[in-house]
Design a protein around this nucleic acid. Sequence first.
DNA 1: ATCAAATCCGACTAAAATACTCGGGATAAA
DNA 2: TTTATCCCGAGTATTTTAGTCGGATTTGAT
Lengths: 137, 137
Amino acid sequence: MKISTKGRYGVRAMGELALYYGQGPLPLKEIAEKQGISEHYLEQLMGALRKAGLVKSVRGAQGGYILNRSPKNITVGDVIRVLEGPLTPVDCVSKDNAEACEKAGACMTRKIWEKMRDSMAEVVDNITLQDMVDDIT
Amino acid sequence: MKISTKGRYGVRAMGELALYYGQGPLPLKEIAEKQGISEHYLEQLMGALRKAGLVKSVRGAQGGYILNRSPKNITVGDVIRVLEGPLTPVDCVSKDNAEACEKAGACMTRKIWEKMRDSMAEVVDNITLQDMVDDIT
DNA sequence: ATCAAATCCGACTAAAATACTCGGGATAAA
DNA sequence: TTTATCCCGAGTATTTTAGTCGGATTTGAT
């Protein structure tokens, strides 16, 4: 029941970008250094975040990454879902999962996982990158 | 961010024991059949639950497993913690984790994980095996 | 006493996921 | 033209997951 380094590193990197928001592109190298994360590995995560539209990149010297929206308008849930996939304790109650389990009626555990899914979502969907920044400043 | 089969199978098996509560020992084989779980694998999980004091076993013919407490007094959280370990999205905010991270003050993400940990616990610690039974009967 | 139904236990293993590393190509500012 | 940067795909070591396997032990029933 843990989030992997993908989600953890990703949220931390997005936090750095939020701190730097409005000051131009922040290079991967700096993010990696500040957060103590492998540069090459973080690169993969940033690629995913870029494809998902959460950040944009500027190539070439003096390049780097920039949040694609204001920190107020990006939630921790947005970031985690890109890097970790759907936020659910079990696949059979994922909102991305079209087909409901046919044994849902006889299932003693379904409601547990639904509640858990909803309560996790409630947390991460209501914390923005701006909230993270405000918390330490 | 998923629970593994240990947690899922374990909760389901405990649900079967709750349904059977008061009617003597229920053999592993029957639990495994009803829930479609590998018998040998479930055996390992029941061993852990027994060591944790959640179930007791009766050996020999006509033996099986019995809940060690009333279904009202066993929560889903009890079961999950035995089989999955501490319920936390990241180790550094686990309540089992004595030493707090020295960078906690400067950490933008700590509060997120704490909230998540608490909201997950709130769900599973407030659903008993009896609730599971009542839900399908 | 014997048999059969059970739990108990430790060792083993295949497959998947995780957490990276590596090398080279493309782009653009100075 | 050099250098800083992003971009991309492939490879890999380690850990976790999800089991399997074989046999020992216990005990109720015949």
